[in-house]
Simulated assay, not measured.
Amino acid sequence: MKLISNTEFGGERPLFESHDLRLENVTVRAGESAIKECSNIEAVNCRFEGNYPFWHVHGFAIDRCFFDVGARSALWYSDHLKMTDTRIDAPKMFREMHDIEIENVEMTDADEVFWRCNRLNIKNLKLHGGTYPFMFCNGLRIDGLESDSKYVFQYVKNMELRNAKITTKDALWETENVTVYDSELNGEYLGWHSRNLRLVNCRISGTQPLCYAENLVLENCVMADDCDLAFEYSSVHATIDSPVRSVKNPRSGRIIAESYGEIILDKHIKAPADCALKLRDERTCFSA
């Protein structure tokens, strides 16, 4: 493997079609597509300032690096990446990629990051700002996520998420086959139009959660006092270790909670309209 260290590049495609290359303490200045159509690349303690540095790269590792604001759209159309201990200040990262491993990474402008990526294994990721991270991703395993980005995890399929703290709006919309463990989910309109969404030991806050969901499962979850008008038109099986402020027109299944502030079952409820609402001692509170 060729080593390049303690230098800088700029301009257009300075390392185009490089292979078997290790970069140490290298700075990529203003320019475009510094490392394009490459393979077997290692970057350690490097700084990226120019646009689109890693496009069409196959097999690469990024360790203890920094992506400045100018390095927008830095990682597209690439695969088999391992990224560790890295800070990213640029938006629109990770597009049309697969086989990604990430550990101890912080993204300070998470606008439109991780779009149409497959097979992601992530540990200890921080996302700040921006909209629509993880749009249309498939096959995610995430352990340790802190995010205040809006509209996170829309149209995601086949995800296992653990130990997350998410403060957002419209999270987990249109998801399919997603399980969330031991997490805090704060925001409005959680999980609408999801299919096979399972929440285990989670704390949920925000208005109108978990509506229009199909085959929704909650196990030993807690709902904050602002979780009103929950479960509208959802098929749901839930055990909730707290009071529920209000439930509106669940479609089918069973909900067990400590208590209910309000139960709304009106003429707009949808068939089969047979969801049983019970208290923790298994007494029936209401069954349509």
Rank of each mutant, 00 (worst) to 15 (best):
I142M: 09
L190A: 09
R141P: 00
V156P: 08
V178L: 12
L190W: 08
S149V: 03
L140F: 07
L145D: 03
L140M: 14
W173P: 08
N186T: 13
Y155H: 15
Y155I: 10
Y189H: 13
G187L: 07
L161F: 04
Q154P: 01
L161E: 01
K157T: 12
K169R: 13
E146S: 12
E174I: 08
I142Y: 03
Y189T: 11
Y189D: 13
G191R: 04
A171T: 03
R162P: 01
A164V: 04
S194R: 06
N186Y: 09
E174N: 14
N186S: 11
Y155P: 00
G144E: 01
L140Q: 05
E184Y: 13
N177S: 12
D143A: 09
L190V: 09
Y155C: 14
D182L: 04
Q154Y: 01
Y151L: 12
W173T: 06
E146Y: 12
Y155K: 13
T168N: 06
G144A: 00
V156A: 08
D143P: 06
F153W: 04
D148L: 05
V152K: 04
K157Q: 14
V152F: 07
L140P: 08
L161V: 05
V178I: 13
Y155F: 15
R162W: 09
E188V: 14
D148S: 09
V180Y: 03
G191Y: 05
R141Y: 15
I166P: 02
L140R: 02
S149Y: 04
Y155E: 14
V152D: 05
W192G: 11
Y155N: 15
E188F: 13
T175V: 15
L145T: 05
N163V: 02
F153E: 02
V156G: 06
E188D: 14
D170T: 05
S147H: 02
V180C: 07
Q154G: 11
G191S: 08
L140Y: 07
L190G: 05
K157E: 15
T168A: 09
Y151I: 07
L145K: 01
W192M: 11
T167K: 11
I142Q: 05
L190S: 04
S147D: 04
T168P: 06
E184W: 13
H193S: 14
D148W: 03
I166Y: 03
Y151W: 10
S194G: 15
T179A: 03
N163M: 00
E146N: 12
S183I: 03
D170L: 05
V152G: 06
Y189A: 13
N177K: 09
K169P: 00
G187E: 08
S149L: 02
V156L: 09
N158E: 14
L185Y: 08
T167L: 06
Y181S: 03
Q154W: 09
L161Y: 00
L161G: 06
I142D: 03
V178G: 08
S149Q: 06
T175D: 08
V178D: 07
M159T: 07
E146M: 10
K169A: 11
K169Q: 12
V180P: 06
V180F: 02
L140E: 05
K150T: 10
V178K: 04
R162C: 08
D182F: 10
I142G: 00
T175C: 15
